[in-house]
């Protein structure tokens, strides 16, 4: 347990995940992970492949359900929720940034940023809100560009605007710079740092790049399904 002054936005207790691959062949991806992430933090999650890093990210992103333990996101116990409830949580509380941007190829920048709004409770003024977000990430002049008309760094900034559109409790970035050259990568990372510092956005970055992790305030290291180190920078 860490200190209890502000309540954590992510509160995970003894989270386990077991994959049943066949008779007697269970893979323990997470072996009782506990961690707290507080509002306004920027945290990096690191670990070699097979460490449970992706599994933990899927849990935090409500993309998968744990086998055991508890996970509170923004005060809500999400480890017990069913499919449609999880979809609503993902929509309103989590902003995803993926390594490969995952933009819809047929859609313009504005339409891509709008996408989470279309599944939200408040699908009004979508275009205006999407444009405002694109301006925030510095793409005010690229509204009607399709992904193939944008550079990698610009595409990742569109994805960042999309992640921000529903004002989520956390931004969950999975290797956000993994597909970018160092200049574009640093540009995207700079944007995330700026959002964290200036807007107080809580950001969780999953990465294996030490250079990226070192720019976060804290790094959580996973090994064989356990947290081995929770260092403060």
């Amino acid at each position: 347990m860490t200190d209890n002054t502000p309540s954590p936005v992510i509160r995970i207790r003894d989270l386990t995940k077991v994959y049943h691959l066949g008779a007697g062949n269970d893979v323990h991806a997470l072996r009782g992970v506990s961690l707290d992430i507080f509002p306004g933090e920027m945290v990096a999650i690191m670990g070699p492949s097979g460490s449970g890093k992706s599994t933990l990210m899927n849990m935090i992103g409500c993309l998968d359900s744990p086998s055991g333990g508890e996970y509170y996101l923004d005060g809500l116990l999400v480890s017990d929720l069913v499919d449609d409830e999880l979809a609503a949580v993902r929509n309103s509380k989590i902003g995803f940034i993926f390594q490969k941007y995952n933009l819809l190829a047929r859609a313009t920048a504005v339409e891509n940023v709008e996408l989470p709004l279309r599944y939200s409770d408040d699908p009004t003024n979508m275009t205006e809100r999407a444009k405002a977000m694109l301006e925030l990430v510095g793409l005010g002049d690229r509204f009607d560009h399709k992904p193939n008309e944008l550079s990698g760094g610009q595409q990742q900034r569109v994805a960042t605007a999309r992640a921000l559109i529903n004002h989520p409790a956390i931004i969950l970035a999975d290797e956000p710079t993994g597909n970018l050259d160092s200049v574009s990568g640093q540009e995207v990372l700079g944007l995330l740092l700026k959002l964290n510092r200036e807007n107080g956005t809580t950001i969780v970055i999953v990465t294996h790049d030490q250079g990226v992790a070192s720019q976060a305030q804290r790094t959580i290291r996973l090994f064989d399904g356990n947290i081995v180190d929770g260092e403060q920078h």
Partner: peptide
């Protein structure tokens, strides 16, 4: 991939 993305962004099964 697109279906996965849409689900991640909040699309329900019915959507």
């Amino acid at each position: 991939n697109e279906i996965g993305l849409r689900k991640a962004l909040g699309a329900r099964k019915s959507d």
